[in-house]
Amino acid sequence: MDFHFSEEQDMTADVIRSLLAKLCTPADLRRLMAAGTPRDDVRWQNIVEMGLSGALVPEVAGGLGLDAADFIRVAEACGYAALPEPLVENTAVALPLLAEAASDASELSRAMDGEITVAVGHPANPFVADADTAGAILMPHDGALYLVDPGSATLVAQPSIDPFRRLSSVNFDLEDARLLTNDAQPLLERALDRGAIFAAAQLVGIAQACIDLAVAYAKERNQFGKPIGSYQAVKHQLASAQVKIEFARPVVYAAAVALSQYDDFSRARVSHAKLAAASAADLAARTAIQVHGAMGYSWEVDVHFFLKRAIALENAWGTPAFHRSRVAHRVLTHPLGPEHTFAREQSDA
């Protein structure tokens, strides 16, 4: 028992954090928004050069074969920076799914080389994120999973409140698509868990970004002759939100470690992580707006980028109601008690 990241895991997290601190500042986000382009090519190139694209693809399929726990703080860092590019969904959801369905697909190796990204249409999500920039789209249909060339499909943009989220509805002809498997269900279930846990990690990052923005503002902004951050009414709101973050983060990490069990215990933990992280992000974003006062309601202050991403991710990869019922299933049908905190299904007996 050692609930502690390894030095290697610390290093990976540090690398992405400092890269994004340099290349994904709020000013960079605003520049991208003004340009109206989906991606910042320089930033994306830098991300690709980190060599993480195949991080969660098994080694037999040519990937790095890392665990979810190795990538979880990468996703957290992407949330913290409100990264527009699809590093998390491409690396942590789409490519592992493609590798499970067709480990020899040429699109997989091209994606791992960073030439293209792959998008996922998943029954949990009404629209497909980043389909318009993808080189291939994984689409379920009638219990089967297909690989779709975006050029042969009809994409209709579905603008999101989050200016950096690019959603589309995707229509395709079965003749134009490549059938990967007729039994997509188990693959899609695992993809949902991956989508949910890495969304949860991003939500924790978003929450912390909101608090950090609000703390910085509360130190600078003076009213009644003192920084507003010296008043308890402000301090206590920020402290309450920070408490929520502190008790979401370890759940996210523990769920990442359990992810590959793919049993009722790990699913409940993923769902718990998603719920806790979403509620921390929600409270942190609203608190940050309140602490900024009227500025918090303005376009000029950066908090809204995080608020909007939080709204999107709270309901992506399973709504809170969906995740609550998965938790209930584990609680009401499996043994409870402190000795089962780290349990897996086999050890029930």
């Binding site: 608090i211 703390v215 509360a218 130190k219 003192k226 920084p227 951050g229 010296s230 308890q232 402000v234 301090k235 206590h236 920020l238 402290a239 309450s240 920070q242 408490v243």
Partner: peptide, 15 residues
């Protein structure tokens, strides 16, 4: 406790 969190964890000013 909230004061402690605000001041020591978040670095908000005491006065």
């Amino acid at each position: 406790q909230r004061n402690i969190i605000a001041e020591r964890m978040l670095g908000l000013p005491r006065v």
